[in-house]
Design a protein around this nucleic acid. Structure first.
Lengths: 157, 157
DNA sequence: CAGAAGATTGCAAACCGCTTGCATCCTCAT
DNA sequence: ATGAGGATGCAAGCGGTTTGCAATCTTCTG
């Protein structure tokens, strides 16, 4: 809901420019520019919070492609680093455009009642995570962290 | 794999004593002491890290009860606070005996290759979590956090 | 600009973890 | 011992996700 500082707000240049940049990017990954692919990225670009596959599908509206196609595309785009996958524990994966190149990511505060999602500022765990990796000899370390609760609107007074 | 300080190590008195304590506990919740129930708790007591339903089922060995029974029991035991549910994002819930009465919990470092699980010390997020709740007006706040990586054994040299 | 190679799509079926309805069985208070 | 109601087994079902396959589309090449 609230992307913090504007300097982190790169509106994903790569996918907003006409085509050439996207082409470059996709070609490098041996991907083709197809209608479903573009439509999915359009949908993601229009939404601030992570979307489920079902939400993406309904958002696609008349350009209505198969669910399997969306699932496959999300894998592909995730593998290429264009989208990021989140898991809020309700059994449905959610996807968001990657903040920018690199490893930046953030976490979420989710209302258990109405599913409103508040995006939190940049993650503060990287130092702790590195310590952890060192202490236990782990490599390629990553983490998941989400917060849940009842939002002010849903709280019964 | 490594429960930290021994003082946190209460071996779950309630379920290890012959029967009376367990009886008390269960009776209070209007639960009955059944063979599957006891067997499941036995299995959990024997393992240090969280188990999936499938793992519990195979660990049950000859006392082989229905999967649905295990699912139902895990819900019940969780609702009673006897077990704690964890989600490592691989699509299968995992269960562990609750550390003790109360809200204590910890997090995990999981090897993405061999699924080895290292239990981390007590959670350090409660203060941050409270701030978050205050700042956004959320109530009943909770969180999930797990770390993933490749353990020293699985790393190819 | 046609042709070819190969990625992508749609469709349908299958998978997987999990839940549920129902008849039967078992535990426990009396 | 008995009755009430929780617990179990079985089988069907559900939602999210994956997959095999044939048809289609994008893009490279000549």
């Amino acid at each position: 809901m609230s992307r913090p500082c504007p300097q982190h707000q790169h509106p994903h240049r790569l996918i907003q420019q006409p085509l050439s940049d996207l082409t470059d990017k996709l070609r490098r990954g041996e991907l083709k520019i197809t209608a479903p692919r573009q439509a999915i990225l359009d949908v993601l670009r229009k939404h601030a919070s992570p979307l489920t596959i079902k939400e993406i599908h309904t958002s696609l509206g008349k350009m209505d492609c198969d669910l399997a196609t969306i699932y496959r595309n999300m894998h592909t785009l995730e593998r290429m680093g264009l989208v990021r996958r989140y898991d809020f524990g309700d059994g449905a994966a959610r996807f968001e455009l990657s903040p920018e190149e690199g490893d930046a990511h953030h976490h979420h505060l989710v209302c258990k009642q109405c599913a409103r999602i508040i995006e939190l500022d940049d993650c503060f765990l990287s130092e702790f995570q590195d310590q952890l990796a060192r202490r236990h000899g782990f490599t390629k370390i990553s983490h998941r962290m989400e917060f849940f609760g009842i939002c002010p609107t849903c709280r019964v007074p």
